[in-house]
Design a binder for these strands. Structure first.
Length: 303
DNA sequence: AAGAACATCAACCGCTCCAAA
DNA sequence: CTTTGGAGCGGTTGATGTTCT
């Protein structure tokens, strides 16, 4: 790597002046940015292209919203961070007019601290206190949901690609390197599905079929599927799930179970061992999942 | 009032990814 | 297949502003 070009060429660093801003905006408005590397000379700026790009993207672009984050935006950031981790650019795609840099700063200076104060680990999004003693049912459910979402999204790239291959009559090859950013599903859509399930359960609407989000889930296997039957414990070895059901109160625990069941069907290890990380070596893993869901299942519609 | 401590955020740096040669 | 260079990403820094003592 060595020293940066700006050091070698004696280019200006540090805060931008209004005159520099004016030159950059004027040039881009007239010519577009084109090659960032070539831009500074053409625009008459003593800056490196990288610095120009950053200034434009994070500050000067006309479609940027600045100022305080709304509650809705905060919630979205927290939820997406639980799903995606520090992938700020991916998070930013779900927050119109906000930049990844701004979101990253806001997370580091506000949200991270707030979660920590609330006793939630900002990295894992798990509660630091024992679930059964100190948290409300609602919080327990939310924590469990976030964990499940995180698991789900770790698999979503694979499921998405796998399903595409099935769709085109190809033998699925699970290979991490074959995925591109464009193939990734919208994580916010995953959230919407979850929220749809949870909301209709909590609002006591009885049959899920009344909500659009459940329609998405109900397409699994091309027929209506009762969510609670998605992944009933299959063996006495499946103690984790069974204990959860037996050890909890009725009501929210059914929801926990529903959620677990749904997630497990998509992301759990085929042997009931929990998910595993070297999934690209295990084609059977995805074959089993697809067997459970049926080849006509609309995984892609869920993601 | 002063300066120390803390908070904020624009900007930089090093790295990876990917397309083109 | 390998090399090269541009673009973009995430972590970090440091200047500036604000609050605390």
């Amino acid at each position: 790597m060595g020293r940066s070009p700006s050091f070698e060429k004696g280019l200006k660093k540090g805060p931008w002046t209004s005159e520099e801003d004016r030159k950059l905006v004027a040039y881009i408005e007239e010519h577009g940015h084109g090659s960032w590397r070539a831009l500074p000379v053409k625009a008459g700026l003593q800056r490196c292209g990288k610095s120009c790009r950053l200034r434009w993207i994070n500050y000067l672009r006309p479609d940027i919203k600045r100022g305080k984050f709304s509650l809705q935006e905060e919630q979205t950031i927290i939820q997406l961070h639980a799903l995606l981790g520090n992938r700020w650019s991916a998070i930013a795609t779900h927050l119109p007019k906000r930049t990844d840099n701004e979101i990253k700063n806001y997370w580091n200076t506000h949200l991270k601290k707030r979660l920590t104060k609330m006793g939630i680990d900002p990295i894992t999004h798990k509660s630091r206190t024992p679930v059964s003693t100190n948290l409300s049912h609602m919080t327990q459910w939310e924590n469990a949901r976030l964990e499940a979402e995180a698991r789900l999204v770790r698999r979503s790239k694979v499921v998405s690609n796998f399903y595409q291959q099935i769709h085109h009559g190809l033998t699925p090859i699970i290979n991490k390197s074959s995925f591109s950013q464009q193939q990734q599903p919208s994580c916010l859509d995953v959230l919407k599905v979850w929220q749809g399930i949870s909301l209709c359960k909590f609002s006591n609407v009885g049959e899920f079929k009344t909500t659009p989000n459940y329609q998405i889930v109900s397409h699994v296997n091309n027929e209506k599927v009762e969510p609670t039957t998605l992944n009933a414990p299959e063996s006495p070895n499946d103690k984790g799930t069974q204990n959860k059901v037996e050890g909890c109160d009725l009501g929210y625990d059914q929801d926990n179970y529903l959620m677990e069941a749904f997630t497990n069907n998509l992301v759990n290890d085929a042997n009931g061992q929990g998910y595993h990380d070297d999934f690209e070596d295990d084609n059977n893993y995805w074959s089993n999942i697809l067997d459970k869901l049926g080849n006509n299942s609309s995984i892609s519609s869920i993601f």
